[in-house]
Computed example of a mutant assay.
Amino acid sequence: MFAAARTADMHLAIYPETPYFPDRRIAMPQSVSSVEVSKSFGRISRRALEAPLTITHHGHDSLVLMSHAEYQRLKSRDREVLALGDFTEEDRAAIAASRATAEAADFDDELRHN
């Protein structure tokens, strides 16, 4: 949930607290046009250091400008997907022999309510 407002040159949104926006009252520009970015890259890039900005082109979302730290944070969440053929027989045997810990039983109710 967030509150939105409009200024003369861009939309502002006030986002709830997140790890990236620890103060819930931060007003961040949600989007800027590519024309504005080309005219005011310095100002826009400084804003992108505080919060990611969507850059629009002909009214359509085109790019996102964000700090390198935020990019690295998002990139670190990437996962590698493996196919069954990527595992050795030893890996498969270890997976088959593995058992969930006692704490995992706390999630059994999620399976029953489906």
Rank of each mutant, 00 (worst) to 15 (best):
T88F: 04
L65T: 02
A104Y: 08
V64D: 01
G42F: 12
G85Q: 08
A27I: 09
A51F: 14
A27P: 00
L53H: 01
D9F: 13
R77M: 12
N114F: 07
R24T: 11
V81G: 04
A13K: 05
M66F: 05
D91Y: 01
L12R: 00
R79F: 04
F41C: 12
A102K: 10
M28D: 02
A48S: 13
R99A: 08
T7M: 13
M66K: 07
E110H: 06
A8L: 14
S45M: 15
H58L: 07
H68C: 08
E17D: 12
E110W: 07
P52R: 01
A96N: 03
H68K: 11
D23F: 07
R79W: 02
M10Q: 13
A27K: 04
A51M: 12
T18G: 05
E50L: 15
H68Y: 11
A13S: 10
N114E: 08
R77D: 09
D109N: 06
F87I: 06
A13Q: 05
L74K: 07
E17F: 04
E36L: 14
L63V: 09
D61L: 03
F107H: 06
F41V: 14
T56R: 02
D9P: 00
A8F: 11
T18C: 10
A97C: 07
R73M: 09
T54H: 00
R112T: 06
L53A: 04
V32S: 00
K39P: 01
N114T: 06
S34K: 07
A100Y: 07
L49H: 06
P29C: 13
V64P: 00
S76F: 06
S38I: 13
G59K: 01
L84C: 05
G59F: 02
I44H: 02
R79S: 07
H68W: 08
H57Q: 07
F107L: 12
G85C: 05
H60G: 01
Y15F: 14
A4D: 03
S31L: 06
F41H: 12
V37I: 14
A100M: 08
A96I: 09
S45N: 13
A100Q: 07
L111F: 11
K75M: 10
I95V: 13
A96K: 03
R46L: 15
D109V: 08
I95C: 00
A93L: 12
R77C: 08
A93S: 10
G42I: 13
A104S: 09
D61W: 02
D78C: 08
L12V: 09
P52Q: 03
L65G: 03
L74N: 09
L65N: 01
Y71G: 03
Y15C: 11
R47Q: 15
D61P: 04
H60A: 10
M28R: 15
P22M: 13
S40V: 04
S62Y: 04
R46S: 12
H113Y: 05
L111H: 06
K39W: 02
E110N: 06
D61N: 05
Q72K: 13
A13C: 08
R24H: 13
A96W: 00
R112N: 04
P22S: 10
A48L: 09
K75F: 12
H68S: 10
S33L: 02
M66C: 10
R92C: 07
G85M: 05
A3N: 14
M10E: 06
R77P: 01
K39V: 04
A104W: 09
R6Y: 08
D78P: 00
L53K: 03
S34L: 15
G59Y: 02
